[in-house]
């Protein structure tokens, strides 16, 4: 059969299925609105899944729609969640009277002109000539991130983690010394130390150092194995979630 004819047949089948789905879901839920939205969700799910067979126009349609919708979603949430109450309402409280009346009578704080300026400067990145000035905003973002992260990572991910590793190697319980507990504590201590030795490349991995690095690799292999197991678990859950939508919310086969 002519490929164009096949494409046309597929298109007609999909279109008919969409119409039927809207009809039946609307009847089932007594709402045309629900019929349209539930069908839309179901068919967009199927369009994305069609990529498993091969790349096709329906997948591309869904993929491109996703890009547009996501960008608008984030912009809207940023606008109503932060820009209006935390910037516009701070600079010009009266301007938000129609949308956020609770903030209209508050005092203005003109210090907020700083983030406004830096924000506008950031948007200059879209301009072909003045893009360089957006570096000022970028520098502020980078400086804040670096300043925030430096101390917090030092305290929570370095000092606290070293502190958590310095544990009694012999696990004493009320019943006496716990062999399994002691073994685990020693394993954690040696495992962390050897793992760190493996990551240390300023000294050649030879002799005692090489042996410790080798133990480090084995510990990391166990870690990655656990990570793989958990990754599979996560991916299957997401698939089960979509399938529950298709077979439950849409087709009504799962309660």
């Amino acid at each position: 059969m002519n490929p164009k004819t096949i494409k046309l047949i597929i298109f007609i089948v999909i279109l008919t299925s969409i119409v039927l789905s809207v009809y039946f879901v609307s009847m089932d839920r007594d709402s045309i609105r629900e019929g349209i939205f539930v069908t839309s969700a179901a068919f967009l799910t199927l369009f994305i899944m069609s990529f498993l067979y091969k790349d096709n126009p329906y997948y591309k349609f869904a993929e491109h729609l996703f890009v547009g919708v996501s960008a608008a979603y984030w912009m809207t949430m940023g606008f109503w969640g932060t820009m209006m109450p935390n910037l516009v309402a701070k600079l010009w409280p009266g301007a938000v009277r129609g949308v956020l009346p609770a903030l209209a009578e508050k005092d203005a704080s003109y210090w907020f002109v700083i983030p406004l300026f830096l924000g506008l400067v950031l948007l200059m990145r879209l301009s072909p000539k003045g893009g360089w000035i957006s570096r000022w905003a970028l520098a502020f973002i980078v400086g804040t991130t670096a300043g925030l992260n430096l101390i917090r990572y030092l305290r929570s991910d370095f000092i606290a983690q070293v502190n958590n590793t310095i544990i009694p190697l012999v696990d004493k319980t009320e019943a006496g010394i716990s062999f399994w507990g002691s073994f685990s504590n020693i394993f954690v201590f040696i495992g962390v130390l050897c793992g760190l030795i493996y990551f240390f490349f300023s000294k050649e991995h030879k002799g005692f150092f090489g042996g410790a690095a080798r133990i480090g690799i084995l510990v990391l292999m166990l870690t990655f194995g656990a990570g793989f197991g958990y990754t599979v678990m996560a991916r299957i859950s997401l698939l089960a979630g979509r399938m529950t939508y298709l077979f439950g919310d849409w087709l009504g086969l799962i309660n």
Partner: peptide, 20 residues
């Protein structure tokens, strides 16, 4: 939450996360 709230503020933090 642990780095920027739990540790500096001594606030108990619990987590519910993806398996990954």
């Amino acid at each position: 939450w642990i780095l920027f709230a739990g540790d500096p503020g001594a606030i108990p933090i619990g987590g519910a996360c993806t398996a990954v």
